[in-house]
Design a protein around this nucleic acid. Structure first.
Length: 421
DNA sequence: TCTGGGGTCCTAGGACCC
DNA sequence: TCTGGGGTCCTAGGACCC
């Protein structure tokens, strides 16, 4: 632990909306929102949309009236575009800092400890550079711990006078700032914990900061104690520069409409399994455990709810799509029950090893290289689009395919989708 | 009609062992 | 009538993040 650290959190403003605005300036100053997969929930809102009272994460149909009345512009998620824009933003940030932790698609922590310049000036110039080269506006919060840099970032976003940058380093009255911060706004305090804390009279970050350690440990577990320690200015969550090897990889989707037939569900499951396998293969991993889950809609009061999952541990780890699909289908046939309207399913792979480093097995030869068939499929799909070659069990079905009514094109990643001026 | 997807970590409790 | 103690490992469920 070190008390003299400096962290900055760079967070893109309404990231998905900002990405759309880069390619369509007419969207500026207008209420714009972006939707989750299947056009379900609102997961990004422009300032103007927030001002209309549209809440984060709300299902689109619940705010239909406002959307229509106020002419809110609605986009389906264009992850290809957002991921590419994110990569560009992160590249610029890495040029400004010795170490960077890409925390999510629209956020990164950097370590500014020991930098000789004025932190705020430095952040302002980073902010201007990102805006100039990508068109994406960001907010930057600076603090002596990651948790405090998050607090600072909230302030930078909320207070227009600050022009997107807020530093709590050498700030005289942090307690005053924390007192104005709701306990649920603190990074690491979610809905459940904040309800629990408020019941105990702890409703702002300052009160949380001065709670007794043992009490915190009991109420919020070990991670909660780290959060509180960070509020006090002692850093215990370091920058995680190298992305550790993942522990699981899943592909799950809400179906575009309820599915009743096992056949349709098998096809969706096969596609989930193929996509998850492709992803681990591209990361040089093999999986030894496969889980499949299936459920009806938890919101549908008119139908009985059913949710089940099961898994298989393979006798040797693999990244062979066909093997993984076959096992996923065995599981889904086992958990499927006739007579339910299934709304969501997914495949989760885990128990990873690096390819070629699988534990020795008495009965099989370890595959030292990727099966040729898989390599060939990956090459073709990479070149001609991700679903060009599918596995027969997927059957090119479209029954479960998701809704995506209003999606922009891949402006930055496909040559024939370039913006025409 | 319509409610996302992809992760991580911690804890409690049960199974099992000697 | 009275049924140990200490340890490990696994899993499900619940919390968190974006």
């Amino acid at each position: 632990m070190n008390d003299n650290k400096v962290f900055a959190l760079i967070d893109c403003n309404a990231f998905y909306v900002s990405c759309e605005r880069v390619f369509n300036p007419k969207l500026n100053h207008r209420p714009v929102v972006a939707l989750s997969n299947n056009d379900g929930c609102i997961i990004a809102r422009s300032k103007e949309a927030k001002a209309l009272g549209i809440k984060m994460g709300v299902p689109l149909f619940k705010v239909k009236d406002i959307v229509e009345k106020e002419k809110v512009i609605v986009f389906s998620s264009n992850y290809t575009l957002y991921a590419d824009m994110s990569r560009r933003v992160m590249n610029i940030i890495s040029e400004f800092a010795p170490s960077i932790e890409v925390y999510s698609i629209d956020e990164a922590f950097i370590d500014l400890t020991g930098i000789k310049l004025n932190y705020e000036d430095y952040a302002k110039s980073l902010r201007a550079t990102i805006l100039k080269y990508t068109g994406i506006p960001v907010s930057i919060g600076i603090g002596s711990t990651k948790t405090l840099s998050k607090v600072a970032n909230h302030i930078a976003k909320d207070d227009e006078k600050l022009a997107g940058v807020c530093s709590l380093i050498n700030f005289k009255d942090i307690d005053n700032v924390l007192e104005k911060t709701e306990v649920g706004e603190v990074w690491g305090v979610g809905r459940r914990l904040s309800e629990k804390l408020i019941r105990q009279g702890i409703n702002n970050a300052k009160l949380l900061k001065y709670c007794d350690d043992r009490w915190i440990r009991k109420m919020m577990s070990i991670n909660g104690l780290k959060t509180v320690t960070e509020l006090r200015g002692t850093s215990c969550l370091p920058i995680q520069e190298i992305s550790v090897t993942r522990k699981s990889c899943c592909t799950t989707r809400t179906f575009g409409r309820p599915l009743l037939d096992l056949k349709d569900i098998e096809q969706a499951t096969a596609t989930f399994a193929r996509r998850a396998t492709e992803r681990i293969r591209s990361e040089g991993l093999v999986a030894s455990s496969i889980s499949v889950f299936l459920r009806t809609s938890p919101f549908d009061r008119g139908n009985r709810y059913y949710s089940n999952s099961s898994s298989i541990t393979l006798s040797y780890p693999t990244c062979d799509t066909i093997c993984i699909i076959n096992n996923a289908l065995i599981i889904v046939r086992k958990i499927f029950k006739q007579g339910y309207k299934y709304k969501k399913g997914g495949v989760l792979l885990s128990g990873f090893h690096n390819q070629g480093e699988e534990p020795p097995n008495l009965f099989t030869n370890t595959q030292k290289e990727l099966p040729k068939l898989m390599l060939t499929i990956d090459n073709i799909n990479q070149r001609y689009g991700s679903d060009t070659i599918q596995i027969a069990s997927e059957c090119h079905t479209t029954k479960w395919k998701q809704k995506r009514k209003n999606c922009t094109q891949s402006y930055t990643t496909q040559i024939d989708k370039l913006l025409l001026v």
